[in-house]
Design a protein around this nucleic acid. Sequence first.
DNA 1: CGATTTTGCGCAAACGTTTGCTCTGTTGTC
DNA 2: GACAACAGAGCAAACGTTTGCGCAAAATCG
Lengths: 336, 336
Amino acid sequence: MPITLKELAAKSGVHPSTVSRIVNDDPQLRVSAATRARVKELVKKTGYRPDGMARGLKLRQSFVLGVLVPDVLNPLFAAIFRGVEDAALEEGYTVILSSTDGHEDRERDIMLTLQSRMIDGMVVASASLRDSSVRWLRENGIPHVLVNRYSDQKDYFVGTDDRLGARLATEHLLALGHRRIAHLAGSPRYSTAVNRRRGYEEALKAAGIEADPALIVETSLVAGGGVLATHRLLELRKRPTAVVAVNDVAAVGAYDAAEQTGLRIPADLAITGYNDIPLAARLRPGLTTIHVPAQEFGRAAARMLLEQMVAGRHEPKRVVLPPELIVRGSTDPGRT
Amino acid sequence: MPITLKELAAKSGVHPSTVSRIVNDDPQLRVSAATRARVKELVKKTGYRPDGMARGLKLRQSFVLGVLVPDVLNPLFAAIFRGVEDAALEEGYTVILSSTDGHEDRERDIMLTLQSRMIDGMVVASASLRDSSVRWLRENGIPHVLVNRYSDQKDYFVGTDDRLGARLATEHLLALGHRRIAHLAGSPRYSTAVNRRRGYEEALKAAGIEADPALIVETSLVAGGGVLATHRLLELRKRPTAVVAVNDVAAVGAYDAAEQTGLRIPADLAITGYNDIPLAARLRPGLTTIHVPAQEFGRAAARMLLEQMVAGRHEPKRVVLPPELIVRGSTDPGRT
DNA sequence: CGATTTTGCGCAAACGTTTGCTCTGTTGTC
DNA sequence: GACAACAGAGCAAACGTTTGCGCAAAATCG
């Protein structure tokens, strides 16, 4: 139904190739001002737009980017996506978003589908540590940027220093006088989880406190998991006075568990999260957490991806943004 | 870099067309079992996948859907998208997501970009009332479904009965004895806002209460707007005892304003929202609101879109899911 | 055993662009 | 005035598929 280049050429009485060159402002184009004006006029009038498929086939690029996240319902990933989208739009790219739900096979499927040359590059915010998908991306020469997920030095990367962030949170609790500090840990498959746990352990060690294995429990990355894990902690003979959660969603689970047990936050149990999702500031008391600039992650990732696409593979760049401790009422009784 | 049909044909010693038919399981294909096996084997081994561009060019479809929302950072729209994504994936479609930020020109730009035949259809959750984009979609024969946004009877549509939902909320407040009930209204450009306001007014009228124009203030659809609007309400000589907010985000603004003014919820000010975003249950007190099954919206929209694409334009279907009142502590002191 | 059907596959055009090259006529140079 | 140079635009191949049609050879039939 939309008008094609050929039809446009026929209408204006020139050859299709000429129209193409005019539309694309071909630098090595030599065409009379009159012809150019006539064609441009007709392009405006008919609202001609080149067929993306045909163009993509010839040019071998689609101007579409792919973003892979575990779940867009998690505000952190929604924000990352939004950042990618904005930066991409500025350069005329559109973005396909896919949620993997953490299943490697679904992730794999999606990648294969996207690969079929429909995508110019991808931002991957879902890859776990032992993930073969990342290797696959490298082997197939697909430009990609990893967000908030560790890899070795071979990939473009943007994220925060998770170890430092977790240390900040833990040190904050130590400074408040806490000594029995628990950790709601994430799956060791995720680099973020591993690094945060390491940061937690480092902070304790630096304070001369030896880590009690019973105080570290693993949780799934959804609220329900946090509840269960926290209950296990609260059933200990010597229960912790504070808990460092691997992320805000798990921390919310800790809130629920505390409420169900009749414990008051922060008097009986202090809690810290990670990510500073919008909900964190809305909880009562507010959740002390580590702010990560998610939308900036997205923007940076998109820019690095585009840069990588024009420049070809160079030394991969790594962007590490600083984590920031946000103190709220869940640790400090003086705040809301 | 990926292997092509032609190369595959050369390797297996048959004509490209034969490979194509085998790969696509062409029903009118007549090929010896031996050849078929040999080719299929080679396809597996090489990991051949047809080039999406070339395929799209020939077939005139891309197996990509577009979703337009005001802002994916709003959990309501994230949920709608997720629904679309899931239903689309089941049918082998991937989805492009774009945020319009409510700007009609940006929406227009995005549509033009997407149209260029890269998209097989779109789900539009962002169109305002006087929106020309919807007309444009119709004129250009692009399959589309409107979500949560009214249109006349000419389009496929899925949403709730906003009027009924707002009536439920208002009647709930009336039943609790409230008489001065205010309304944080949305922009009249949005059909949802218009219908909710109408439902609010109907409920008052049915209760024999005449609407006080001073009790209806317009707010933008972000938290900041809700704060300002609520302050204006609270400055009235006879201030309202309850407020029906056009959505949860505005209601959160009302919470803030109440807190800043030193009013207690629900004793001094009862509040209802709309949408039941995850945050609503987490506020203290919990926000009484109208639950809308956002993810189901998305699923339904995708299914209708795909149906429309195979069937061609028939009588447009309209799916209206029932709104459900969720009572929490922001209106009922007996709850949390 | 010759005619007819069926099997198995190849041929080539088409989808809508892009782009290196060719070709004609006009202008400039000596 | 002969020749080079250049402006202006057309030609055709190519990108990787799909698909209607054609055409041999093998199988079936009377």
